Simulated scan of single mutants.
Amino acid sequence: MSKLRILYLTSEIDPFLELSKIASLTRKLPQEMQERGMEIRILMPRFGTINERKNRLHEVVRLSGINISVGDEEKPLIIKVASIPSAKLQVYFLDNEDYFQRKTVFTDKQGTFYDDNDERAIFFCKGALETVKKLGWAPDVVHCTDWMTALVPLYLKTTYKNDPIFKNTKAVFTVYNNVFDHKFSEDIIPKAKMIDISDENLANLRSRDFSGLIKVGCEFADVIVKANDELREDIESIMEESSDKKIEALVEDENITDTFFNLYNELVDLEKVEE
């Protein structure tokens, strides 16, 4: 049998960037799954706080050079890669001069949420899927982590549903309590659009906020995962509306790797991955 292929999309991973407990979990899960025989890829944004020289990032020329549309604009995508020390794992970093070469991550030095964080998330979600296409690597499961990856399940179920790379891919969306109160501009929907996506597919984005992104991720994912014991009340309600496909895998749970190992295997029809 072929190995299960798991793609992790995250905004942070230890040791490159640690903003919350997500970073340690996204470091732990891929290594554990690889040690259990799965094939792993990890993608994240190349935020400006990540020191390229210290972490030995280098550009992957064969993957770079794609332009990603964000509304009416085309933004060049640069792909870099680095190895995780003490692990046989590589992380692919998605970079763009306009979006990621800043000295802070989601807020400026005064703590103000960046107005274009929606564009940065859209660019990352679209860019990640295009990068995987260019790799020619068909994932069985895409594990989407937190709000910045929320649009990926939607794109997989619409624009990419008949793509040979993604046609059998399942999406897992993990929801954390990393809430923000910012309201994005009204053009978030046209910026998020891709081929074969209707306004109705993006209806939950009309709120232009954190909960809207979470709603989209929950609507289109095959499984949604509650990662924090206590979520903000409105986010808890969103997850309860999708209770038929919700599981709990709390970030503090010492058995969390077993939970995800079993989940990935249950999601994939093993007969389809036989050679």
Rank of each mutant, 00 (worst) to 15 (best):
M239Q: 08
M239S: 05
E241N: 11
E241Q: 14
E241H: 10
S243N: 13
S243F: 10
S243I: 07
D244I: 07
D244T: 12
D244W: 14
D244F: 12
K245W: 05
K245G: 05
K246L: 10
K246T: 06
I247Y: 14
E248Q: 15
E248M: 13
E248V: 07
E248G: 15
E248W: 09
A249N: 03
A249E: 00
L250D: 01
L250R: 01
V251W: 06
V251T: 05
E252F: 12
D253Y: 05
D253F: 03
D253L: 07
E254G: 05
E254D: 11
N255A: 13
N255V: 04
I256P: 01
I256A: 00
I256E: 05
I256M: 02
T259V: 08
T259A: 08
F261Q: 08
F261W: 01
F261E: 04
F261D: 07
F261H: 06
N262L: 08
N262Y: 08
L263N: 03
L263E: 01
N265E: 06
E266D: 12
E266T: 03
L267C: 03
V268P: 11
D269T: 11
D269F: 08
L270K: 07
L270Y: 05
L270C: 05
E271H: 14
K272S: 14
K272P: 08
K272F: 11
V273D: 12
V273G: 13
V273Y: 10
V273E: 10
